[in-house]
């Protein structure tokens, strides 16, 4: 596994700049807007060609909202989504109309969390995996069937299964079908939203290995949305941590796990139960609950739960800044704190 040289940063596939997605809260008979849920609030990061960027956080932190904005399942409230297309152009996905987006959609695909809910039970594998091909103009049944067979082989399923229906397959096999469908159009960017969290442990490893192998063979770029930090540590080159709609930290995986710079990241790492009875985990545990993104606290959103909070944290919103080359953090005290990571 040749790691890219540290100083040769590959070009970006997608650059997200100050992305915001607010959902209005409507109340009363006239459905007046009574407030906003700030699901994604000033999120900026870039996904580089060929890398796997992990996006982690607890439920409700906005990671899925960001993923859906990228795929334009949601229209962002503001901000830019600069996509570097196959032909080398730069387009702002946030501004495009539906018809203008259409030719670009084939370059971005999604792998879903639930392998049961994401496959139509009335469609055969040929129809499921072949549908994106048909929609994108591959009319010849013969050509489609060849491509579907190729895709099924690629994800480790016998091509003879093409005429079967999803109910005949286990969770892991279904996830392979979902992956084949996502790869049908040779996407540049694959957004995988918790692709293994619904699978059993013994099957999880198979799917993770498949995703790694496909990435190397097809030079894919992944945005990997997940909450399991063990999986993220294993799978991602860089990791972005979200809390209440904001990015709080982004760094190379090794750096983030060895020396987190944001107290929330450190707490998240400490909370993972170690699969070893000789290692007692959960020492520094977070108190309280995640605040609502409809009424976030003043200052730093994390201050009510933070063991290191000072006055500035209560009143001033910390800026998202680069503390070391490639290591971004949103914390007033990032320079002075010495937080514990998970030792390698």
């Amino acid at each position: 596994m040749a790691a890219p040289a540290a100083n040769a940063t590959p070009p970006a596939v997608l650059e997200i700049k100050r992305l915001r997605k607010y959902f209005p809260i409507r109340k009363g008979l006239l459905q007046r807007v009574a407030g906003q849920v700030r699901a994604a609030d000033d999120v900026s990061f870039a996904i580089r060609q060929g890398e796997t960027l992990g996006l982690v956080g607890e439920s409700g932190c906005g990671k899925t909202t960001v993923a859906r904005c990228i795929l334009r399942a949601y229209r962002p409230t503001s901000g830019q989504l600069l996509f570097y297309t196959q032909s080398g152009e730069v387009v702002d996905l946030a501004q495009l109309s539906r018809p203008a987006l259409r030719p670009l959609r084939r370059q971005m695909q999604m792998i879903f969390q639930d392998p049961y809910g994401s496959l139509n039970p009335r469609m055969s594998l040929f129809d499921i995996v072949g549908e994106p091909l048909l929609v994108n103009g591959l009319r010849s049944r013969q050509a489609r069937s060849e491509r579907v067979a190729e895709l099924l082989r690629l994800v480790g399923l016998p091509p003879e299964y093409a005429q079967r229906f999803p109910h005949a397959f286990s969770g892991g096999q279904r996830q392979r079908i979902g992956i084949a469908r996502a790869l049908a159009l040779n996407p540049r960017l694959v957004v995988a939203d918790e692709p293994v969290s619904a699978l059993d442990v013994s099957v999880q490893a198979q799917i993770l290995n498949l995703l790694l192998e496909l990435q190397q063979r097809l030079s894919l770029t992944y945005l990997f949305v997940a909450h399991n930090l063990g999986v993220v540590k294993h799978f991602c080159d860089r990791v972005a941590v979200m809390y209440v709609g904001q990015l709080v930290e982004l760094a190379e995986t090794q750096a983030l796990f060895r020396r987190p710079r944001h107290p929330y990241t450190a707490a998240l790492l400490a909370a993972v139960p170690a699969p070893d009875p000789r290692v007692r985990s959960g020492a520094a545990e977070l108190k309280g609950d995640v605040p609502s993104p409809a009424s976030p606290p003043s200052g730093c959103y994390f201050h009510p739960r933070c063991a290191h909070a000072v006055d500035a944290c209560r009143s001033e919103r910390p800026a998202y800044r680069e503390i070391e080359p490639g290591h971004f953090v949103r914390c007033h005290r990032a320079d002075e704190l010495n937080l514990e990571g998970i030792a390698q």
Binding site: V201, V203, A205, L208, E213, K233, H234, F235, P275
Partner: peptide, 23 residues
């Protein structure tokens, strides 16, 4: 089962040992 868990201590991006087949 123990080998196949990606833990925070496993070698990053190496293929995980798997249990072949499915349940």
């Amino acid at each position: 089962l123990l080998r196949s868990i990606p833990s925070v201590n496993s070698t990053p991006r190496a293929a995980l040992p798997t249990v072949s087949g499915s349940l």
